[in-house]
């Protein structure tokens, strides 16, 4: 079973289900109806196509075809983004786009309005997960579940912050203790000198031992 299609199917189902929880979703979709957006994620070179209609999004992950078929992804969609995965989270902030393009983390081909409308759709959707779960599970389980999820989220955020602070402090402290390049060179010279004197001492001991053995043989 093609796993890519299973994942894209799941993503499509989730995206459309989630979107419907905002009553105004069709308002945000309207400017995108009939348009398409291609996204190529780097460094994996994974291409995803999003096709918008007035009531849903279709997600397709085009297969690379064998032999004499060359898919020109940019030609298929109205707008095509080639983006480094590390820059994905910065895409929401339109002020960052120029910087991302300069840093070669983002390349845009085609109609920029499509990308802007998709960004607006993602930013404007107001999805109340607690309300969504309340309809499916009931009030108490939904609030318990969301409370638990929030606690986990807060704990993970605290853990992340804690790790960042600890690692930061450790690096600063380590930096203080780390020997300077000059001290390292001096230490290296001293080691070389010590090795030289050790070699000399070894040679001298050997010579003395040989002289002692020669004297003993003469006495005999």
């Amino acid at each position: 079973m093609p796993i890519t299609q299973l994942l894209s199917g799941a993503a499509e189902l989730s995206a459309n289900e989630l979107m419907r929880w905002d009553n105004d979703y069709q308002t945000y979709l309207a400017p995108l109806a009939g348009r398409s957006l291609g996204i190529t994620l780097l460094p994996m070179h994974l291409t995803v196509h999003l096709y918008f209609s007035d009531s849903r999004i279709d997600i397709s992950i085009p297969e690379t075809l064998p032999q004499n078929e060359i898919e020109v992804a940019a030609d298929i969609c109205d707008c095509h983004l080639t983006i480094h995965i590390s820059a994905l989270s910065e895409m929401r902030n339109a002020n960052q786009l120029t910087r991302l393009i300069k840093e070669d983390k983002l390349d845009i081909e085609g109609d920029l309005a499509v990308a802007q409308n998709v960004s607006a759709l993602a930013n404007n959707l107001d999805i109340d997960l607690t309300e969504m779960l309340t309809h499916k599970l009931g009030d108490v389980p939904a609030h318990t579940l969301m409370g638990g999820a929030n606690s986990i989220k807060n704990y993970v955020a605290y853990l992340k912050q804690h790790v960042e602070v600890t690692v930061g402090e450790a690096l600063i402290e380590e930096k203080r203790l780390v020997a300077s390049p000059l001290a390292l060179a001096h230490f290296s010279d001293e080691v070389t000198d010590t090795r030289y004197w050790c070699d000399r001492l070894t040679a001298r001991i050997q010579r003395l031992e040989q002289a002692q053995q020669a004297q003993q043989q003469d006495v005999k």
């Binding site: 079973m1 093609p2 199917g9 297969e63 109205d78």
Partner: peptide, 18 residues
């Protein structure tokens, strides 16, 4: 439900465009 995945694969291989 797997027929949906097979059909999705077919569409992904079609190279269909606007």
């Amino acid at each position: 439900g797997i027929h949906r995945i097979w059909k999705r694969y077919t569409i992904d291989c079609s190279g269909a465009r606007k």
